[in-house]
Nucleic acid binder design. Structure first.
Lengths: 231, 231
DNA sequence: TGGTGTGAAACTTTTCACAGCT
DNA sequence: AGCTGTGAAAAGTTTCACACCA
């Protein structure tokens, strides 16, 4: 029944969902694409196009019923069920993820924490005992873990991913700054904290360069003939 | 001089850079677009197109000089200078970011940690004393902070962003699950950990649904006439 | 010979603009 | 009268395929 949803749209549905949940708490019965767009920081045509991939859930002249739309997005994203996740790597980041409230709120339950450092195994983090990597297959089976999170140093990432795949995990979120390859049929996404900073640095540098050109332009204008080029 | 680089390319340059640095450590003098593509997990035409935006730094029949390419990408991304960053919000995530080695390795120095909880102010985290939010303008001026990182709960994010902008910060990385608006001229990027899991859940659910259809199809095939549709 | 650099084609995503429903 | 749903245009991105050059 459900047609394929473009990747770009899938990436925005969680955003709309968060905004809608906030709206629902504020008691909004219906919302227009324009209101939703402003709250999500995108434009309204995009909102309407995105939501149209889910079906025709709006009412012309009125808008979208907030509660109903929340339900439809949840269903489409597969959030009407709970998901078990396992975090491998209990360093600073792994611990922060283990304690992150936002996962549980959205239906993701940390079923286990794993680290191969014998020093860490057995310790309790966020109410969960840290376990060894070789226990992964059993954990995946018993706790029905669907998603694996890699929070190890880069050097361990590929090995951990291989263990995850062998244990039956088919969706992986990789926080390690390393390229990890997985077989066909396994989905992997990566989040690299330093990459985001580097992208910001690029645009920041451009702004500085631009300001510099303007300053020079102004200095020229003050000192001699006005610049003609506008570029 | 330097033409504008497409956003998609800017997003991949840090990835190439990481791979190239690894290659340089392994002693590689030159690298072909194909080798780089494999190591970065993309295709070689994309690598060549991306690198062509920086200029013609390759040699036909040979490839790219690893050290030279590293230098050019660093220069283009603005990584030849050091960047001061300030992290606001010293919860689990803020602490993990403060201790993250990957930032310093790439030229980002955490100049200050800020939290408005009086309990936390004055405490030392990762060798840095936590300071109060009202100190931000002075910190930005003295330490020449260019980038602000928001690691607070969603409810505080907009307020923190406003303080950052007022203090003169023009590039912000937001980890809080909230839409934050900033004035023209300020760049903001967001990383939402739960969003990534939701996207994975969507594709995982699709795979499950597909497997289900196949299973039914097989059952039908075993029980009666073979299915004709392939789709 | 081998691999870059790049027009052109294919595909994806965004935006426009308006018919059509409530 | 107002807002959705959507074709069609525009913009951006990826991939192809090959001329060109070390």
């Amino acid at each position: 029944m459900s047609r394929t949803i473009p990747e770009a749209t899938v990436g925005r549905l969680p955003l709309y969902l968060r905004v809608l949940v906030d709206l629902a708490e504020a008691g909004g019965g219906t919302v227009s694409s324009e209101e939703l767009a402003v709250a999500a920081g995108v434009n309204s045509a995009k909102v309407r196009k995105d939501l149209s991939y889910l079906g025709s859930y709006g009412t012309r002249g009125v808008g979208y019923d907030v509660a109903y739309l929340i339900h439809q997005i949840r269903r489409e994203l597969g959030l009407t069920q709970h998901w078990g996740i396992v975090i491998v790597g209990v360093g600073n980041l792994g611990q922060a993820l283990a304690n992150y409230r936002g996962f549980a709120e959205r239906g993701f339950q940390v079923a286990a924490l794993i680290d191969d450092d014998p020093e860490k195994v057995g310790r309790s983090v966020g109410g969960l005992a840290v376990r060894a990597l070789h226990e992964l297959p059993g954990i995946v089976r018993e706790a029905e873990v669907a998603i694996g999170v890699i929070a190890t140093p880069a050097s361990a990432a590929q090995d951990v991913a291989d263990h995850m795949v062998a244990a039956g995990i088919r969706s992986i979120l990789n926080f390690a700054p390393a390229v990890v390859t997985v077989p066909e049929g396994v989905t992997i996404r990566k989040v690299d904290l330093a990459v985001e900073l580097q992208i910001l640095a690029y645009y920041e540098q451009r702004k500085a360069a631009l300001a510099d050109v303007r300053r020079r332009g102004k200095a020229v204008a003050e000192a001699g003939p006005p610049a003609t080029s506008r570029s």
